[in-house]
Design a protein around this nucleic acid. Sequence first.
DNA 1: TAAGAAATGTTATATTATAACATTAGGAGT
DNA 2: ACTCCTAATGTTATAATATAACATTTCTTA
Lengths: 153, 153
Amino acid sequence: MNMRKNDTPQQNGIVDQACIFCVENKERLTRPRLEVLKIIAANTKPLGAYEILERLGKVIDSPKPPTAYRAIEFWQKKGFIHRIRSLNAYVICHAVHRHKGEQFMICDDCGVVTETHIYDFSESLKNRAEDNTFIPSSWYVEIHGQCAQCQTN
Amino acid sequence: MNMRKNDTPQQNGIVDQACIFCVENKERLTRPRLEVLKIIAANTKPLGAYEILERLGKVIDSPKPPTAYRAIEFWQKKGFIHRIRSLNAYVICHAVHRHKGEQFMICDDCGVVTETHIYDFSESLKNRAEDNTFIPSSWYVEIHGQCAQCQTN
DNA sequence: TAAGAAATGTTATATTATAACATTAGGAGT
DNA sequence: ACTCCTAATGTTATAATATAACATTTCTTA
Ligand SMILES: [Zn+2]
Ligand SMILES: [Zn+2]
Ligand SMILES: [Zn+2]
Ligand SMILES: [Zn+2]
């Protein structure tokens, strides 16, 4: 896929991946899906569904909530974006490959969310879970605290 | 505090703790707070705010959303209940002492939520976080999967 | 090109949560 | 007991988040 005007390099990496993914998996890369993904990818901080919808309105004619939510659900299921439960907001996933476990560090001061790929402690989760004969399929972790930037201020 | 009619033993343990807590911390154990805590304590599965409100309506005259939400917020801040982010629902905490980290195993089949007190892996979280100069203050973990009961069915 | 499936457009509404302000209840000091 | 003050609640309205339902369009494939 070629470089598009007004797109950030960040977006291009993600959009390229999405494009490849859709071709390989015979999914449709429709206008709402593409634009929603670009909007989420263009932001480091998580965006709420109605913030996404608002920005979508700048490139698509008066979109309604289901249009945003459907695209969000699509990318979420495919692992391209994550939903931050505590914030009701969505962020792009930067992992090269899709993953089941989700771990985020959330700065309660400035709102920055950083995805951490701590694959190792999935083992301790699994071990603990299996003690209780619970079969884990996925996990979700939020670590709240203060980011480096906010510590200096 | 004495045993109350129509209360489960489970409720009494929690209500007794809450009573002691309020006396020691000079907090008011008001009617809405008491009833909301009892409602949440009486259920093993997480209850939504409007489910709590509905049940509250059986013991208090036509309560409105803020009445439920205020009591929920109170107990949540004091650590007596937890909010399950993925479900927008609330469960009682059975820990004897209050804690910062929250870990839940959620059965996606039947909806049962079990709080697991895995204090040990807070260390791996902290170590990882400190590598990135992020200072953690609390954490929240959801492990999704299938419970023992649902495996036999 | 015709049929079927998938996605979107559109309208309405469900669900979850909070703002704002009036009223009541409890505690401290006199 | 009376006054003052604060915390909590009652009440009304609305904000914020999310989905149901059905009509229409687009894509695929035969
Ligand atoms: Zn990710
Ligand atoms: Zn920060
Ligand atoms: Zn707990
Ligand atoms: Zn189960």
